[in-house]
Design a protein around this nucleic acid. Structure first.
Lengths: 316, 316
DNA sequence: GCGACTCATTTAAACGTTTCAACCAGCAGA
DNA sequence: TCTGCTGGTTGAAACGTTTAAATGAGTCGC
């Protein structure tokens, strides 16, 4: 039914080895036969079977991306850049969503292993370290983005969340806020999230404690922009205006944060660059048949927009 | 290096055929040997090589998703649901982004063919019909979402865009608008977009012509929510308020449209259901070794929010 | 004690490539 | 004329599975 290398070989009167050679320049082949082979390929509409190729070469030219929630724009941006960059090097991308469910994550990663991906990227806080270790033990290089992980074989791309939160807190204090609340997402990832602690530490250094509840605060630091934008919505429902009554700060700087109606003060992370770098680290590790074993800290920027303002006498 | 079925067989003192049989219940095997095999699998950490399996079975249990712009939340929602639903049936998903570039699209689809995906979904207006025909001719079933395509072998999931735009125009006219502009995205997809024509037709039926420019209009229909939200932003920059000075309508009802600060009147498409249905149609076609050859029209709803209002005397 | 069955297991040939070793022709140098 | 290259080509053995056909060992009815 489908046309194979054998068919091409037959039609052009050469051996399959020769066809393979013209396809990959892996040995010199006479110009005339090369032409004949190419013609046969054209005429038959032959397209190489990458599955067979993968089996023989023991490498699939495929990357796995395991992402907890693809609806989060920050993670999605990274994932998309991964796909784009990987494609440039002829790598395909197998996407696995884990919905913050450890069991599902395990199943997904096992599926990736079964499909013999050449490497895996985790674009967000998620993986249990057992799962990471399993991949690494199998010789599969791994890059994790923006979460603390111990294994030295890992590639890690992160930002200095403590420094970033220092900046945020500085900004809020300069505006006169004293009652700052930290709001996390409901997701399981919060267990590994260092941001609440970073905020607490930054406040403590100025002799302050975090507020106990949103209702109590004049300013709220959110663990990411999605949470911040939802919060703004909820506050509106309670009749509290942003920034007049409450200041709100996000994290990530997703595209929507810049929209005039939202205008969210936030910490910018260079998502696209992080995605690109993740792929590049992974690809060179794969090429050199080794683990990534490298840690990179990316810069952040505090982007001040309209969701933060000086605390009013009334609110204070 | 990596452990294979042979290793498991050796360790448990049986043949590879038996191992295969216990793994897939493809022939009766004694309880005692089954246990021994399972133990060996455990001890060795064996994980089946899906690549070899795919080669032999001539099916990869992999779907291709070719998407023009994964940053568009509507398309992303469909794609994510595709991944979730496919995973439930043990299918993996290979994502290919085409960035609205026909050449890139061709390359991506060829890559999918080379990897022998069992089926392909196009979650958005995009594919050149030559590419679709190539897939179909190779016996690969295809589902396209929400765009008009002629080939009878195709699976098509769409909405009645004309009816939807009738509703939109009705809504605007009821609010007193007479000068309505249609705004498309800059992307190449606009060539296949039927929505401008649908709006024109709906207006014509009421004896009206579309406005020539945004500046000229009291209401703007956008080809999707992303365009609408951007437009609102730009209008704010020019000092025109929405909805007081201009009414704006989107299409898709992406999550952000419901946000209180955006509050976009729009046409809801059931993205999740569309994604799920796409997979289900594709999977049954794959199982039955045939093309999908089916066309489904999904319902839409006009969701009226705060971005549309009665035209003011001043604006009119 | 024999044929007919069933249940459990194995042998071996694929699946579509890559790649190594071998081969052959022609030619340059001695 | 022989030797050794070099450029071009091929045969055949993998890669890790599945699966049809073959084999073997019981069991059963008679």
């Amino acid at each position: 039914m489908t046309v194979t290398m054998r068919d091409v070989a037959q039609r052009s009167g050469v051996s399959v080895a020769t066809v393979s050679n013209v396809l990959h320049d892996t040995a010199p082949v006479a110009e005339s036969t090369r032409r004949r082979v190419m013609e046969a390929i054209q005429e038959l509409g032959y397209r190489q079977n990458e599955v067979a190729r993968s089996l023989k070469r023991r490498t699939t030219h495929t990357l796995g991306v395991s992402i907890p929630d693809a609806l989060n724009p920050f993670h999605a941006t990274i994932a998309i850049e991964i796909e784009r960059r990987a494609h440039r090097d002829g790598f395909a991308v197998l996407v696995a969503e884990t919905e913050n469910d450890p069991e599902l994550e395990e199943a997904q990663v096992h599926a990736l292993v079964g499909r013999r991906v050449d490497g895996v990227i985790f674009p967000a806080v998620t993986a249990g370290s057992a799962i990471l270790a399993e991949l690494l033990d199998r010789g599969i290089p791994v890059v994790v983005v923006s979460f603390p992980a111990a294994d030295a074989r890992l590639g890690v791309i992160e930002v200095d969340e403590h420094a970033a939160m220092e900046q945020v807190v500085d900004h809020l204090l300069a505006l006169g806020h004293r009652r700052v609340f930290f709001m996390h997402s409901g997701a399981r990832e919060e267990q590994v999230d260092v941001r609440p602690e970073a905020v607490r530490a930054a406040l403590a250094r100025r002799g302050l404690e975090p507020a106990r509840a949103v209702e109590d605060a004049t300013a709220v630091c959110c663990t990411n922009d999605v949470v911040a934008i939802e919060l703004i919505d909820q506050l509106a429902g309670c009749g509290r205006r942003v920034p007049e009554d409450v200041s709100v700060v996000g994290f990530d700087d997703i595209r929507m944060a810049a929209h005039s109606r939202i205008s969210l003060t936030t910490v910018r992370q260079p998502a696209v660059e992080m995605g690109r770098l993740a792929v590049e680290m992974l690809l060179t590790a794969i090429a050199e048949r080794r683990h990534v074993a490298q840690r990179v800290v990316m810069p952040t920027d505090l982007v001040v927009r309209g969701s933060t303002a000086a605390v009013t006498a009334e609110a204070a």
